[in-house]
Simulated assay, not measured.
Amino acid sequence: MRKIRPRSAGAAAGLAAALLIAAPTASAAWSATPSASDTGRRIHQHTEIIQLVARQTHSETLDAGKKGLGPGDEIIIAEDLYRDGKKIGDHSVVCTYVRTEPGELQCLGTFDLPQGQITSQALLHLPAAATVDIAITGGTGDYRSARGFVHTVPAGTHTVPAAVTERRLTFHILVDDQQED
């Protein structure tokens, strides 16, 4: 596969990198409405609000088909996740071009954290907005029932979207907690 550097890929990589990130609990609020299951367990839900900073460490665009930007080409991004200046996890995302005119990317990501992994996805329309909400689709470990969204915004002052390699992330994660009756 050949590497390509289309003009819109830099901006897409910066935003796509921010699209999919998560981490350990910052705060939690318990739901007042439990639900029953067939196994005699009650499921309580709580919401975790998590705030992190993501710093891009690698970005590469791959030309998977005909020469030049086209459907099927990919942007691959790696990021480090930080809380209070300390690295707490990693994030990987792959975005595939669905269309190039207008630009449209399908992005899938995984966040590796001490408590488990969180998966997420988004359909990104180019040119992308500065802030984006991304769906949380599941996870492992403490996040095995995770759902919700992550709100991303650029960190600091940037005048060129392609220069944004750091973003602030606010996760709104709904998690089920099972308890024996």
Rank of each mutant, 00 (worst) to 15 (best):
I75F: 00
T57Y: 06
G65E: 10
G68P: 06
V94W: 01
G89F: 00
G109P: 04
G148L: 04
R41N: 14
V132L: 14
G141C: 06
K87P: 02
S35R: 14
C95T: 02
P114G: 08
T159A: 09
V150M: 13
P34N: 11
D112M: 06
V93Y: 01
A32F: 02
V93R: 01
G139W: 03
T159E: 14
R83H: 09
G148R: 01
T39V: 06
T131W: 04
T119C: 07
R147M: 12
R83C: 07
T61E: 03
L69V: 07
E101A: 12
Q56Y: 01
E104S: 09
R167S: 10
Q117H: 08
G139Q: 02
S145V: 04
I134P: 01
T165G: 05
P161W: 04
H151E: 12
Q56C: 12
D90M: 08
H91R: 11
T152V: 13
D80H: 12
D38Q: 13
H151M: 10
I49C: 07
L105C: 06
R168S: 08
I118C: 08
A146T: 04
E74Y: 00
Y82N: 06
P154S: 03
S37E: 14
Q117A: 14
Q51M: 08
S35L: 13
A129Q: 11
V53P: 05
L52N: 04
A155F: 09
L81P: 03
D73F: 03
D112R: 10
V153I: 10
V132R: 04
E101L: 09
S31C: 13
Q115V: 06
A155M: 11
K67T: 14
Q121Y: 00
R167A: 08
R83Y: 03
I49L: 12
T159L: 13
A36P: 04
Q121V: 00
E48P: 04
G65L: 13
A32Q: 13
E74G: 01
D133M: 09
I75H: 00
A32S: 15
S120M: 07
D133R: 10
D133H: 07
D84E: 15
T159W: 11
A163T: 11
L69F: 05
E101P: 00
E166F: 00
T57N: 08
